[in-house]
Amino acid sequence: MRMRPTLSWTPTEDLPAGTTDLAPVADALRAGGVLVLSGAGISTESGIPDYRGEGGSLSRHTPMTYQDFTAGAQARRRYWARSHLGWRTFGRARPNAGHRAVAAFGRHGLLAGVITQNVDGLHQVAGSEDVVELHGSLDRVVCLSCGAVSPRRELARRLEAANPGFEPAAAAINPDGDAGLTDDQVGDFRVLPCTLCGGILKPDVVFFGETVPPRRVDHCRTLVREAASLLVLGSSLTVMSGLRFVRQAAEAEKPVLIVNRDPTRGDRHALTRILLPLGTALTTLADQLGIPLDDHPVSRPQA
């Protein structure tokens, strides 16, 4: 279960200090079998803010919880109005150097896989394959009644037609694709049902307060078990959905390496925490390993 974001975590003084020495990460990549676990921090250089870093969105925005979403029509109206507006920007975000570096490491056979806590799809757009989307993806919509899954772009077109002239100015775009709107800006935004059964539509993402599907968790645990090391990129590891894999790797005495400028909840389990920005760290690693980055990422459907 993803905990409510208001349950914050405060780092303690006994955590190891960070460093700018990339040598342990380079060594792990050269050895191969590295499992990547990425968080919101890897997408900040693509214009998508993170939750808890400097200027993180939790200081001004509380993500929708599953309980709130299912509790009533007005909460869903607010969510879909804000998410529809945010999708226009969010869906056009492009992979940054960090995403391209991860894809390049995968192409050169250095990775055991990629698990991402993000819902932006940017790893796949950059060319990474077999990415496990731990919290789902905003590219898809699921019906809570019949379970049908459909492309988000189809719903976006329907919502555009049902809400002509809906062009409020958003205060900000958040990591979950939600835009900052007031209730007055939401107005009487029209929410649309499933075209197959008339049921409630929800983005195919794991909301805070919702449980990650057990089969997905089991698959991730298998990846950790089969990996040689775990490389955490841009995650504070505040919620258990990602931290459990760090703990699993540490218990199995596999090296845990973290690239995150702020302290994380997993630092006590890590061989090292790199303080560098992700784009800088990962492109430097690619250069040290003689791996070129692909400047032509896979195209994605327009939002």
Rank of each mutant, 00 (worst) to 15 (best):
G98T: 09
L85F: 02
A270F: 04
G47K: 08
D178A: 10
R52A: 10
D262M: 10
T238W: 07
D120Q: 03
G266H: 07
L159C: 09
A170T: 12
G113P: 12
G121C: 05
H135L: 05
F207C: 03
A97Y: 05
A286F: 04
G106Y: 08
A101I: 12
G91C: 05
S229M: 03
R4N: 15
A75T: 13
R77N: 08
T264N: 08
N174Y: 14
L293Q: 04
F245G: 08
D295Y: 02
E251T: 11
V205P: 00
T283V: 12
A179K: 01
R244Y: 11
L230M: 07
L37F: 05
P175V: 13
Q117P: 07
L111F: 13
D68R: 06
R60Q: 12
V224I: 09
L192H: 05
L122P: 04
V102F: 11
D27H: 14
T222S: 12
I200A: 01
G187T: 10
N96H: 08
P175F: 13
P277E: 07
L37A: 06
V131Y: 03
I42T: 00
V232K: 01
D176P: 08
E253V: 12
S229A: 15
R4V: 09
G127I: 05
T62P: 01
S229L: 06
E154A: 15
T272N: 03
G180D: 13
S57F: 10
A126V: 06
Y51N: 04
R273T: 07
N260K: 03
C143V: 02
S59K: 10
L35R: 07
P175N: 08
I115M: 14
G147P: 05
L275W: 00
A81C: 01
A93N: 02
F90Y: 15
G180F: 03
S59T: 14
L181E: 03
D218Q: 14
A162K: 06
C197F: 03
